[in-house]
Design a protein around this nucleic acid. Structure first.
Lengths: 135, 135
DNA sequence: TACGCTTTGTTATAATATAACATATTAAAA
DNA sequence: TTTTAATATGTTATATTATAACAAAGCGTA
């Protein structure tokens, strides 16, 4: 039954592959451009694949950038809880997989006592490289 | 000198007022529509005001919704560190101001030892009302 | 085969956001 | 007070991001 969950259609595979190869987050229309040689011609085809890949936890959307990255956590079949660090200068994005952080956030209770197992956290700052170059 | 920081231009005041009055996050074009009777006619006028208000910490952008809410923390002159809870059903958004959480996140060190004083956290779940109605 | 379901292809358009440039207002330097 | 610099505004056009709507193809299975 897990095969079902992991099955990717042709378009989904094409889109995933290009995102996995990329070193930085990709925008939907830049993906569209890249896959046109493979027969994908129109935005809905890309957006459908993106939606599916997100649901499967294969990729994540960087909301502050409207861009997409491959999931770096091998086991991230559940895409609900994500954390990223984003460089304000070079825009590099790194997925943070820190058990303490995810535990903390999953156990966090708001004022009303509510908990959330779904969240997205985006940290901003200067990455090591950019920090050096600026100083 | 703080007066300078708090000074709002005409358009900025108009846009802020409408966001503060709203009970839910407002989209840029719905703001545009609302303020057309007050003489604001084109998207750039709204987006400029929004940008400025965000920088001043008067409003925040809910990235997952492309919508804008007034800051509920009286002292949120620094808009860098934000956390929200968002109802998956009714889309209600509440700003979380929890000193423990903000301390935890500001002190969080990633694998490389980096810290971030700028972040945005969006929690998703069902708000109390919607949880009741679904059960 | 025939049915239902998912995926695909396609056109069109909606929704979100910015570029570019001209003008006006303001604050304060000369 | 005039000049200047900086900020804010108005305006048109356009770029970017995303979805609606519907027809057709493929696939599993009853």
């Amino acid at each position: 039954m897990n095969q079902k969950i992991d099955f990717l259609s042709k378009n989904q595979q094409i889109v995933l592959e290009i995102i996995e190869k990329a070193k930085e987050p990709l925008k939907a229309y830049s993906i569209l451009f890249s896959v046109q040689k493979k027969g994908i011609k129109a935005p809905p085809q890309v957006y459908r694949a993106l939606d599916r890949l997100i649901k499967l936890g294969k990729i994540h959307k960087i909301e502050s950038k409207n861009a997409f990255v491959a999931c770096k956590n091998d086991n991230c079949t559940i895409s609900n809880a994500t954390a990223f660090s984003i460089c304000d200068n070079c825009e590099m994005v790194t997925e943070i997989s820190n058990p303490k952080l995810s535990k903390y956030l999953a156990n966090f209770e708001d004022e009303t006592g509510m908990r959330y197992n779904k969240y997205n956290l985006e940290f901003f700052g200067l990455c090591r490289k950019c920090k050096k170059n600026k100083s």
